[in-house]
Amino acid sequence: MTQQPLVKISDLHVLFKGQKNVCAVNGLSLNLLPGQVLGILGESGSGKSVTLKALLRLLPAHKTEIRGLIEVLGRNVMSLNAADLASFRGGIASMIFQDPMLALDPVYTIGDQIAEVVTRHHGLKRRDAMAYALDMLKKVRIPSPERRLKAYPHEISGGMRQRAMIALALAGNPKLLLADEPTTALDASVQMQILLLLRELQKESGMGMIFVTHDIGVAVEICDVVAVMYAGQIVETGTIRDIVKDPKHPYTKGLLAANLHGAERGKRLETIPGSPPLLESAPTSCSFAPRCAYTQAVCRLKAPEAVTISKNITVRCILETNMNS
């Protein structure tokens, strides 16, 4: 009855070593079912992008220490060899980024780049691969796709580049799409176009998607479930409806208030004071306690356990622990 999860991460720790250590991810666990869209919501430094990169094993090996389990379709990502990793990236899981200018190679045409992926993952000949690339461009609704096939990344507009990057990511028919703030740098109107496109493509192919964003508004538009991250941990998980309408964790509440949606003009906002911890060492107590309005003595002593409130909602906060015991 229980579906095999598409992605299963349990107790993931990521430590960046350097002159100063940074404990970027501290005991993160999450499951993603096939066809589900999971949003990871968090501010800069919360470890949301690092989690995505760990999933694709994109973190530099010599500077990072990764502990924990990452499974995609039941396969341990951490133990893939070089050849398996190459077919895993792009073939099973692929990624889209915030800045397509950096993700696309400036010296090859859009068509060449997509065709290259197609050749690698589907073993097609160049001519067929180009035809496939054209289909991909049509799929992401790039206007006059024949012309864009021969265009270089700098020759097309920002919104179109983002579409081209999506086409590139989807060319290998992945089961899992990882999106790292793909709409943050775009204008509002283009952002909505891309979100609608992603929603449609996801529905069509049934792929799973993890969408990292700092913007609740964007998460609302695209996610089924949301995991709110703070200081390298998930502090609350729930359906997007639960998170927006009935947030439990004080941090989630603060984030929602800061969104300004429905804020009264010119009236001071309820804010979360202070700034996130530097994470030079792994947290041993609640990381949010120094900024929280409901801090109790316990919060500074030990880290709160994740409490499952209902089928979908999990919260890591002492208030919920107390309420449910």
């Binding site: 919104g159 909505m192 609740i216 609302v220 538009e221 927006v244």
Partner: peptide, 18 residues
Amino acid sequence: MPSMDPDHRSEHVALAGD
């Protein structure tokens, strides 16, 4: 602008093109 309402997501593109 994002709707902020999971029950009424934006359904069509308000402004096409760049």
